[in-house]
């Protein structure tokens, strides 16, 4: 059965017997001072071209009325934090919306592309920031790294952008998209 599923791989020469204490080199441990992390993936313009290649975009100046806000909240079950919309009409049909969601530990800016029919075409994360409350309190401890990042061999957030173990939820984006689809029905359609 192992052969069929491809589970069998090359057996390493050393046998894993027991757990041994893990001691990281001091320089590596110093690298643990990652103050959350921030990732920027796309600018608004890049996201527009990624979702609607070759199209042109016409930004609309829309502010939701209190009635529209209530309507969107009751349709989606999600709170509307900002009544000002960042929305573009796409040449050839469709909509491009930039939105922000705030989680317990993270702050995400994303773009939603809607087809002319109002269905979801694509979602792209523009910007993702992780924040932790206690890190603010540890600001003085972080001071020791100020000014060292450019030449020091420390791998700070700029380098270590990828984290294993970040089981980050996309739940807030799901809620945001739900809210934007209701916004489309109420204010754009």
């Amino acid at each position: 059965m192992l052969e069929r599923s491809g589970l069998e791989t090359d057996i390493p020469s050393k046998i894993v017997k027991d757990w041994i204490p893990f001691v990281a080199a001091p320089a590596v441990i110093a690298g643990c001072a990652v103050p959350g992390f921030a990732n920027t993936y796309l600018t608004v313009e890049q996201a527009q071209q990624a979702i609607f290649p070759g199209a042109s975009f016409d930004q609309l100046n829309i502010t939701l009325t209190p009635d529209q806000q209530k309507n969107i909240e009751s349709r989606s079950g999600v709170r509307v934090r900002s009544r000002a919309l960042k929305v573009w009409k796409v040449s050839g049909g469709g909509w491009f919306i930039v939105d922000e969601v705030l989680g317990k530990h993270e702050y995400i800016t994303y773009a939603l592309g809607l087809n002319a029919s109002g269905s979801v075409r694509q979602i792209e994360i523009l910007d993702y920031r992780e924040t932790y409350g206690y890190e603010v309190r540890e600001a003085s401890w972080r001071q020791q790294f100020v000014g060292k990042t450019s030449q020091a061999p420390l791998k700070l957030d700029g380098d270590v952008r990828n984290i294993s173990g970040a089981t980050l939820s996309s739940r807030h984006i799901t809620e945001g998209v739900k809210r934007l689809l209701a916004t489309y029905e109420v204010a754009l359609r």
Binding site: V28, I29, G31, V34, H105, E135, N162, I163, S164, G165
Partner: peptide, 18 residues
């Protein structure tokens, strides 16, 4: 190769090792 941080489960805001 890609640098990857492993989170410290006691302090999820920090990586333990790269």
């Amino acid at each position: 190769s890609f640098p990857i941080g492993i989170r410290n489960p006691c302090y999820p805001g920090r990586t333990f090792v790269s």
